[in-house]
Amino acid sequence: MATDFSIYLTGSSYIDSDHPAIRAKAAELAAGLAGEAAIARRCFDFVRDDIAHSWDYRDNAHNPVTCRASDVLLHATGYCYAKSHLLAALLRANGIPAGLCYQRLALDDAGNFCLHGLNAVYLQDFGWYRVDPRGNKPGVDSAFVPPLEQLAFAFRSPGDCDLPEIWPEPLPQVVASLTRHATVEEVAAHLPDIELFPVRT
Rank of each mutant, 00 (worst) to 15 (best):
M1N: 14
T3K: 13
D4G: 03
D4K: 11
F5R: 02
T10E: 08
S12E: 00
Y14Q: 07
I15Y: 07
D16S: 00
S17R: 00
P20N: 00
A21V: 00
I22L: 09
I22S: 01
A24T: 03
A27C: 04
A38R: 09
A40I: 01
R42H: 01
D45E: 15
V47G: 10
D50Q: 13
A52I: 02
H53F: 07
W55S: 15
R58T: 09
D59W: 06
A61H: 11
V65L: 08
T66S: 10
T66N: 12
S70A: 02
S70P: 05
D71P: 01
H75C: 12
C80Y: 10
A82V: 09
H85L: 15
A89I: 10
A89V: 07
L90H: 02
R92C: 05
G99C: 06
C101K: 14
Y102S: 08
L105V: 07
L107Q: 10
D109S: 13
L115W: 02
L118M: 13
A120P: 01
V121E: 10
V121G: 04
D125S: 14
R130T: 04
K137C: 13
P138M: 01
D141Y: 08
S142Y: 04
A143N: 13
A143S: 12
V145G: 05
P146S: 07
R156W: 07
P158Q: 02
G159Q: 14
L163G: 04
L163I: 14
E165R: 08
I166T: 09
W167T: 00
P168T: 11
P168E: 01
E169D: 13
P172C: 14
S177L: 06
S177E: 07
L178R: 08
E185T: 15
E185G: 09
E185I: 08
E186Y: 04
E186M: 01
V187F: 04
L191F: 04
D193F: 12
I194H: 09
L196E: 03
T201Y: 05
T201R: 03
